[in-house]
Design a protein around this nucleic acid. Structure first.
Length: 454
RNA sequence: GUGAAUGUAGCUCAGUUGGUUAGAGCAUCAGAUUGUGAUUCUGAGGGUCGCGGGUUCGAGUCCCGUCUUUCACCCCA
């Protein structure tokens, strides 16, 4: 028999990892709820027609397609099979695909359920997504996203609240050294038009986005190769090279490009932050932030944790036309943020930020020495459970040594040893595993002590 | 999708120019200790050297293919 393996880029999660993942999920979920977002879920599979064309050419290639059920070649002319290539065959044999993100299914959901939705609609969604990417560090083929989106309002308070949520989540997770990068597609568009590059925004944005990774020289080379003239490139770097506070950058842009809507929006978002009693700590207006996803139209965000070599752990932005793709009459503006749990996990692991208590376990193991005491142990465990204390009975007749080893490995807090003496006197032998101290006490006393600590 | 590296016990890794029966630490199991874990001592089990083919008298070692993982590109959480 061959050893079983996992599909490339997928992973199992053991109890320790799950405890830590749950900790992240809970933290994010509680903050989302604190800001009035409501949960929804959508299917793992969508119709391919829903997914294709929403993420750019590259994105389409990364979609996992699901082979049609039954005889999927039935309706294809056999003659054409000989000449057809896989690119043209795919849409004929696969009409479903695994979701690539949570935003597009959400837009689909909004269009399909608009009569039941109260706008502005604030939803959050925590589910896995799949991308047929080549895996590497911090990049998986199956990973969880935690999205919060507001749809049906173009108020910039949403942008401000998104930043507040990011800060709240990272504060609760204990991540302190990070920055929320903020930019606006309108500013990038203004830059593009100043460079006389309208129509070539795509390649321009992609090149700009790489600036902090490959450096100015390489970006210049790439832009030259893509047909931008030196004068335009100089103008670009003159703008990007500007160092200063968020305000100073905005003022600089104002002088160079007049008061564009993008600049106004960013200024307003930053001001709103102060209206909420918060500040611009961790928030960095970054003109070089571009982001690839094609559907963004307004503010865009990205979160980078410093000191860890991993991509962005969170990203999002405003999209004005996403629902219109599914229904032309539907023109609701939306804005959202997505947290990548798997990358946040990697970051926290690398920075050693997981609290010790995330290991889930039981409070008490009742150990027994023979048949009679095992029944007594069951009653003890049942009583403890009735008081909300998690308790286990060691299932087999085994040496005490073995039972204690089990408790040790599971990091059980207390062990109750039950033998003839304990049954006769009702004085249970209670051992605290961490300290190794042991004392005799009645069950009531044990319940009181643990309840006090919990 | 393009280019490169990697794979030896459950884990981390040794293994010389191709040469006898592939090793270590940790982990596991058993005993020392028939009512006491995490510390100590003794012993034991555990391998298709990723998989398939080739070269050779002989391959963990060299060659080809393939899969996995990792890295860079592309893109992204």
């Amino acid at each position: 028999m061959e050893k079983p393996t996992l599909p490339k880029g997928t992973r199992d999660f053991g109890p320790l990892q799950m405890a830590r993942r749950e900790y992240i999920f809970q933290t994010i979920r509680s903050v989302f709820q604190l800001y009035g977002f409501q949960p929804i879920e959508t299917p793992a599979m969508e119709n391919l027609s829903t997914l294709t064309g929403k993420y750019g050419e590259e994105g389409d290639q990364l979609l996992f397609k699901v082979l049609n059920s039954g005889d999927f070649l039935k309706d294809i002319e056999r003659i054409s099979l000989a000449s057809i290539d896989s690119k043209n065959l795919a849409p004929q044999v696969a009409e479903k695909g695994l979701r690539y993100d949570l935003t597009v299914p959400f837009a689909r959901y909004v269009v399909m359920n608009r009569h039941e939705i109260t706008f502005p609609f604030k939803r959050y969604q925590i589910q896995p997504v799949w991308r047929a990417d080549r895996p590497q560090k911090g990049r998986y083929r199956e990973f969880y996203q935690c999205d919060a989106d507001v749809i049906g309002t173009d108020s910039l308070t949403c942008e401000a609240e998104i930043i507040l949520m990011i800060k709240a989540i990272f504060r609760r997770l204990g991540i302190t050294d990070y920055s929320v990068k903020l930019n606006h597609r309108g500013i990038l568009a203004g830059l593009a038009s100043a460079m006389h590059a309208s129509g070539k925004e795509g390649s321009l944005f992609v090149a700009i986005d790489k600036l902090d990774k490959i450096g100015e020289v390489a970006v210049r080379a790439e832009l030259t190769e893509r047909g931008f003239d030196t004068k335009a490139i100089d103008l670009l770097f003159q703008t990007l090279a500007f160092k200063g506070s968020n305000q100073e950058k905005l003022d600089m842009l104002n002088k160079s490009f007049a008061d564009s809507p993008g600049v106004k929006d960013v200024r307003a978002v930053l001001q709103l932050l102060h209206s909420y009693g918060d500040n611009e700590e961790h928030v960095e207006f970054d003109i070089s932030l571009a982001r690839g996803l094609t559907y963004y139209t307004g503010c865009i965000f990205e979160v980078k944790v410093h000191g860890v070599a991993i991509g962005s752990v969170s990203g999002g932005g405003r999209y004005d036309n996403l629902t219109a793709i599914f229904d032309a009459r539907e023109k609701s503006s939306g804005v959202g943020i997505s947290f990548g749990v798997d990358r946040i996990y990697d970051v926290m692991d690398a920075l050693n930020l997981f609290p010790e208590k995330t290991q889930a376990t039981s409070d008490v193991l009742t150990c027994h020495l023979d048949e009679a005491s095992s029944h007594y142990a069951m009653r003890v465990a049942a009583t403890l459970r009735n008081h909300g204390i998690s308790a286990e009975v060691y299932p087999d007749q085994a040496k005490l040594k073995k039972q204690l080893e089990y408790a040790d490995k599971k990091k059980t807090r207390f062990v109750v040893v039950i033998g003839e003496d304990e049954m006769r006197s009702g004085q249970l032998t209670v051992k605290e595993m961490k300290t190794g101290t042991q004392e005799k006490m009645k069950l009531d006393e044990l319940i009181r002590r643990i309840s006090d600590q919990n």
